[in-house]
């Protein structure tokens, strides 16, 4: 039996799973200082996506080949992106000389092991990590609040409406499409949408602090604006250089998202050697892509579109199955 609190914690992590390295940096690039509005509009778009998911595809299991194929592809894609982000983030900031495989393999193995213990272990894990994550976010955001300026947002709404609309769509896609992985977890529609909105509000709060602290120009320049903000933390004038500790919150999001993906893959495949091949292939492709800047950059720039396409296919196939059944 999964409690509402556990459901909320899982939804929270899944909502935020695409924000490190891609979410914030991409939407900041498109809508700059007016991103706060994009995030609010994007929440509405995301809530609508989640409403559609709950109404048309959730809790509908199907065993036909096409559905299985789509399920594999969707989850493998999400795991691939998660591991790629972990690899690029860790080698950019912490483990610059460590071979990528040494970073990705333990991460992916841990997520796989967690998924093998079943959904109850996953939700308990998320319930445990949620307060730690919220505590670290609160501390860090309060610590950088003093460096923020309201002028970073002024003048309001000068970014073209088209860009705000695109950025809102990106936000909706980044926060809502990963929810497709909850397709076989029984969540009440109202609780789901409510939890999504609360989680999104936390992301909006973080986004606003980032804009106010870094200013309208630097948010567009940095590859990891969410991490660069943490570098400025100085608590009580003596606690500093704690960005790596606080940066853990982004790993929690990716870890929980990967665990749920593996859980879904296990349910569909349930053959360890196939999962092992999938893990090996993902690790190989992550290495390949991260060593070729062109490919990594292509994926980064087109991630919302790729995510939208693969999410739409997932949605359509499940919707058709429901209709035919």
């Amino acid at each position: 039996m999964i409690t509402n609190k556990q459901k909320f914690s899982l939804i929270y992590f899944i909502t935020n799973s695409f924000f490190l390295a891609s979410g914030y940096s991409l939407i900041f690039k498109v809508s700059g200082k007016d991103t706060w509005l994009s995030m609010i509009l994007g929440t509405l778009i995301g809530a609508f996506f989640i409403y559609l998911m709950n109404k048309y595809i959730f809790n509908k299991n199907s065993n036909n080949i096409l559905t299985k194929l789509v399920t594999y592809s969707f989850h493998i894609f999400i795991i691939f992106i998660n591991i790629l982000v972990v690899r690029i983030f860790a080698t950019s900031f912490f483990l610059t000389k460590t071979p990528g495989i040494v970073i990705t393999l333990p991460f992916i193995s841990l997520a796989f092991m967690c998924s093998k213990k079943g959904i109850n272990t996953i939700v308990k894990m998320s319930e445990l990590l949620l307060p730690i994550s919220l505590f670290l976010i609160t501390i860090s955001m309060i610590a950088v609040l003093k460096d923020g300026s309201i002028n970073s947002f002024l003048p309001l709404l000068t970014v073209p409406k088209r860009k705000i609309f695109i950025s809102s769509l990106y936000y909706g896609i980044f926060t809502a499409i990963p929810h497709l992985m909850l397709y076989n977890i029984n969540i009440d529609e109202k609780i789901h949408i409510k939890s999504y909105i609360y989680s999104s509000l936390i992301s909006i709060f973080i986004g606003i602090i980032i804009i106010s602290t870094l200013g309208p120009y630097l948010i567009k320049v940095f590859r990891f604006p969410e991490y660069m903000v943490l570098k400025q933390i100085k608590l009580f004038n003596f606690i500093e250089k704690i960005e790596n500790l606080i940066g853990l919150v982004w790993f929690f999001d990716l870890f929980m998202s990967s665990s749920v993906c593996f859980y879904n893959l296990n349910k569909v495949i349930n053959k360890n050697f196939i999962i092992a091949i999938i893990i090996a292939s993902i690790v190989y492709f992550v290495e390949f892509v991260s060593k070729n800047y062109e490919y990594a950059n292509y994926i980064y720039k087109h991630l919302p579109i790729l995510l939208f396409i693969i999410g739409s296919i997932f949605f359509i196939i499940f919707y058709r199955n429901k209709k035919s059944s």
Partner: peptide, 11 residues
Amino acid sequence: FVILITTGCFN
């Protein structure tokens, strides 16, 4: 084996 070789000691 994993504990010994994947501890990030390369850095």
